Amino acid sequence: GTEIELESKNGQREHYTATSEDEARKIIEKAVRRGIKRIELRGASEQLIRDMQEIAKQIGLQYRTDGSL
């Protein structure tokens, strides 16, 4: 699965493990709508990382991946 670590603007951290790319995408989209400061992805697919970079650029988000592409 993909591990997703979120940090909201007030510094609250949340951790999710998505079993599918679809689920990961839903978690990320929800977080973005809620207003999130930072997202870290571990074990994400190349496609998901590309999507994440696109989203991050659009809304000026900090993100990090573990680089295991």
Rank of each mutant, 00 (worst) to 15 (best):
30 K>W: 12
29 E>Q: 10
38 R>V: 06
44 A>D: 00
43 G>Y: 06
44 A>Q: 02
24 A>R: 00
50 R>Y: 04
53 Q>T: 09
4 I>K: 01
30 K>P: 01
44 A>I: 02
56 A>R: 04
49 I>V: 08
47 Q>W: 06
3 E>Y: 15
62 Q>L: 14
8 S>F: 15
7 E>T: 13
11 G>K: 02
42 R>G: 04
12 Q>D: 12
10 N>T: 12
36 I>M: 05
64 R>P: 12
35 G>V: 01
64 R>Q: 15
19 T>G: 11
60 G>D: 11
54 E>Q: 12
42 R>C: 08
64 R>S: 15
44 A>G: 05
26 K>M: 12
46 E>Y: 05
46 E>Q: 11
18 A>P: 10
10 N>D: 13
13 R>A: 05
17 T>K: 10
65 T>V: 15
18 A>D: 08
60 G>I: 07
69 L>Y: 13
22 D>G: 07
53 Q>H: 12
36 I>P: 02
6 L>H: 01
29 E>T: 06
18 A>C: 14
55 I>V: 05
12 Q>R: 12
36 I>F: 09
29 E>C: 15
7 E>H: 10
8 S>A: 08
35 G>N: 06
22 D>Y: 08
1 G>P: 10
3 E>H: 13
27 I>G: 00
8 S>T: 14
46 E>M: 09
38 R>M: 07
45 S>K: 02
33 R>P: 02
39 I>L: 09
24 A>K: 00
47 Q>Y: 05
19 T>F: 11
14 E>S: 07
42 R>E: 05
61 L>A: 08
6 L>V: 15
58 Q>D: 08
44 A>K: 01
24 A>N: 00
67 G>C: 15
69 L>A: 08
28 I>F: 12
24 A>G: 02
55 I>T: 03
27 I>N: 00
8 S>D: 14
35 G>A: 04
22 D>W: 08
38 R>D: 03
63 Y>T: 05
43 G>H: 09
69 L>G: 09
55 I>P: 00
21 E>Y: 13
52 M>W: 04
27 I>W: 07
58 Q>H: 08
18 A>V: 13
36 I>S: 03
1 G>M: 13
61 L>C: 14
62 Q>E: 15
21 E>W: 06
40 E>V: 15
31 A>Q: 03
52 M>P: 00
61 L>G: 05
57 K>G: 07
59 I>R: 10
40 E>D: 06
66 D>Y: 02
55 I>D: 01
23 E>A: 07
64 R>V: 15
60 G>K: 06
65 T>E: 15
46 E>C: 13
25 R>N: 01
51 D>G: 04
26 K>N: 10
13 R>M: 09
56 A>N: 03
51 D>Y: 14
18 A>Q: 04
38 R>A: 06
54 E>R: 08
62 Q>I: 15
62 Q>P: 05
20 S>H: 05
67 G>Y: 03
66 D>V: 06
26 K>C: 13
67 G>D: 13
31 A>G: 05
3 E>A: 07
13 R>P: 03
42 R>P: 02
48 L>T: 05
50 R>H: 12
65 T>P: 15
21 E>R: 05
55 I>F: 14
48 L>P: 00
34 R>M: 11
1 G>A: 14
21 E>T: 10
44 A>S: 03
42 R>N: 06
